[in-house]
Design a protein around this nucleic acid. Sequence first.
DNA 1: TGCCTATATATCGGATTGATATATTATGAA
DNA 2: TTCATAATATATCAATCCGATATATAGGCA
Lengths: 178, 178
Amino acid sequence: MDIRTLCLGILTMGDATGYEIKKTFEERLGLIFHASYGSIYPSLTKLTDEGLVSCRELSQEKRPDKKIYSITSTGRYRFLEEITKKPAPDRFRSEFLATLMFSHLLPAATIAQLIDERIADCRCKVADLQADCSDERTDTGRFMCGYGRTLYQAEIDYLTENRHLLEADALLGRRAAE
Amino acid sequence: MDIRTLCLGILTMGDATGYEIKKTFEERLGLIFHASYGSIYPSLTKLTDEGLVSCRELSQEKRPDKKIYSITSTGRYRFLEEITKKPAPDRFRSEFLATLMFSHLLPAATIAQLIDERIADCRCKVADLQADCSDERTDTGRFMCGYGRTLYQAEIDYLTENRHLLEADALLGRRAAE
DNA sequence: TGCCTATATATCGGATTGATATATTATGAA
DNA sequence: TTCATAATATATCAATCCGATATATAGGCA
């Protein structure tokens, strides 16, 4: 599944412009999938060429012109085909964890600060998700919020209980380097 | 932090060939960061050009020739600079969750099977990490294993307790489509 | 007045993936 | 025995995607 397919998915929920699709990615898929204009606009052009979406232009007076995209019936069928395929494994990349892998090369205070900031970030995300959840009207929406909240909370708990392991390696590494 | 930097980090642990660096990514950074040959080999070439690593060639009799890379002192310094920077936010992409976002378009049985398979995958990963953990000799290694295990277990628990929310939406969606 | 945010489209360089090519040996199954 | 495939090793290519940047207008606010 690529961004082209997910644009199609977003259009099953209603017509939208490229700009609105970007907002949907941020607001509703933020936990799951990211997409930039640099991939969304070319996707929409390609989908139009393939007849999976249609496009009507709307000139506005006080705003730049809009291109409003609608999914076609071919597009709807293609999207169903795509989401019926076995999903590819998750892709994950964490510079935070990559840094922690080298704890023994860093001062213990740096590691401590890094973890403090991470925990603060996670708490912030838990709070945001908690707030969003009450606005969600579907069970699927609530499921997604809960999913994020649970995993962020699990991370907070794990970091709090096990950070001493890294802080110990940072101290040992320093001593070894002296 | 890019793959170039992480190759440098792996070389702080000892000399290695491109092939061995790839194995290290899979075995020790599998949870955290992925890299393919298509990014590792060009990285090593560039790092050599920049003087951050050095390279000696070793012709082998019963194997293809090796290029063994070593980090230089400039490289070591550069790596420390890089990991002292504030880490960029995690990048995450899940086709599994993206599919679940559209539960209402799929039969309840498909959703159920998808979640069953996901739980099986997670259990498998928890078991692998459990086994790996006993081989780890550093606190940092044990911390990383524990981190993965905790998050996969949290996912299993959440899916088990909340899958009914999605299965309900799948049934509702079907009924609405009829 | 100046600055930021929001609306809206578009493109470009650079990073990265996944597949493929090439070549040899070892291992295990049929 | 024979066939397949895993392991060792390097390298490149098309396609994908991100982050930054360009362009333009309007509204809010200090």
